[in-house]
Design a protein around this nucleic acid. Structure first.
Lengths: 225, 225
DNA sequence: GCATATATTTGCGTATGCATTAATGAATGC
DNA sequence: GCATTCATTAATGCATACGCAAATATATGC
């Protein structure tokens, strides 16, 4: 999926990215409807590339094409997030297992290590935005170590959704101190080649994260109804 | 994704299904290129719905749109199949865990049970086609028990690919006796609510299947080069 | 005979127009 | 006053047209 975007910078690709960005920026609010023609004007192109981009985004679960109602930006419910985290838990655990079994040297593990360090630094500075970015990086790098392109692309799709949910919940949650400890432990397990340990640590880590974000989303929903 | 198809029978949807079926039937051979306009004529519609359908199929990994080369039907390499099986292993294991934890009654477990019985019967009759169908059903039902719509749709996507690969390898493999035993064991573990056992049994089962099909695909590739 | 330049073809990306069909509101009957 | 039907509106689904760029064929110079 990522590779598909790097081909040529066509209008369809631009529309795809623009719409995606607009959704993440909240410019297209979750639950809102938008006519294809309206979006086309907004992006300065015709309906065709907008439609094609919308079709792609639909298959990624960011929006839905509803005949005569326009494209509907899908909201992220706690239930959706629970599903997503369950999938991420499994796929990242697989990645952790692969990584541990590869007996990687320090240079190959460097991206993970720096991500962890960055998270610590961000935490010290109470900079949650930076922390979230580094956290994303950690999980992303981990998944890339699986060198399974399917795992990677599913992960990227779902990370998008997680990032959307995190926008809402980031400042409701406590400081992710435990989370940072988790990362270090997982990292050490991978480094020492203990696949089973890496998997079980990572699984527990993700399950905690799931519970946290799902609860926060529920709270948030209560606040906003 | 499945739900999207049930909306209205539009030309795009028809094209989507037709192309998919043609790919599975081998009518569009793996590795072959086809012009959009050519496919449009063949399906009796204009290029637009063909393009839209192709776009969807691209995001499902069945084909690739290559400017000026036409849509390329992606071949299924042993490497791809290994990736797919690794993902399926994790997601189905998750489903097995969920299923075991739900303490389902016999009526809810019935679809699994019949699938297993059908496999046995097919095996007795040495009817590999029927066996494969029942096997598909078993795995499908299992995944549906997860009631995780993401897991289900990823599974359905990847099952399509597996089915394609199986077309080629089904008659090269030995009788799946061991496979049937595996299914029964997994089933019993789920019924008795032993989640960990269900997971480990199922994981092992899928890893065996992976090795088998990947090896067969490699052999097949050697034969056809 | 070969390499480079030029012409031609061809397929795609995109715009646009039209027919279809769902949604909305008006009008009519009960 | 409410429901039902019909007319109107409007957005989509799709066909079609066109320009551009890539690929191929042709021609030209050496």
């Amino acid at each position: 999926m990522k590779s598909a975007q790097t081909k040529p910078p066509s209008n369809t690709q631009r529309a795809f990215h623009s719409l995606r960005d607009m959704i993440f920026a909240g410019e297209l609010a979750p639950g809102s409807d938008h006519l294809e023609s309206e979006l086309a004007v907004r992006l300065g192109v015709s309906r065709t590339p907008v439609r094609e981009a919308a079709l792609m985004l639909e298959s990624q679960g960011l929006l839905e094409l509803r005949p005569r109602k326009g494209v509907r930006i899908l909201p992220i419910s706690p239930e959706d997030m629970a599903e997503i985290y369950d999938v991420l838990t499994e796929l990242e655990s697989l990645a952790a297992r692969c990584a541990a079994e590869l007996s990687l040297d320090d240079s190959q593990l460097a991206p993970l290590a720096t991500a962890i360090d960055d998270m610590d630094r961000a935490l010290d500075a109470s900079d949650l935005e930076s922390w979230a970015k580094a956290d994303d990086r950690f999980h992303g790098e981990l998944v890339h170590l699986s060198s399974n392109s399917r795992v990677i692309s599913i992960f990227e799709m779902m990370s998008d959704q997680v990032r959307r949910a995190r926008k809402v919940t980031l400042f409701m949650r406590p400081m992710p101190v435990k989370s940072n400890e988790d990362h270090r432990e997982v990292f050490e397990a991978i480094r020492s080649g203990d696949a089973n340990l890496a998997v079980s640590l990572h699984r527990a880590h993700r399950q905690n994260a799931k519970k946290m974000i799902v609860d926060l989303l529920k709270k948030h929903r209560l606040l906003n109804v």
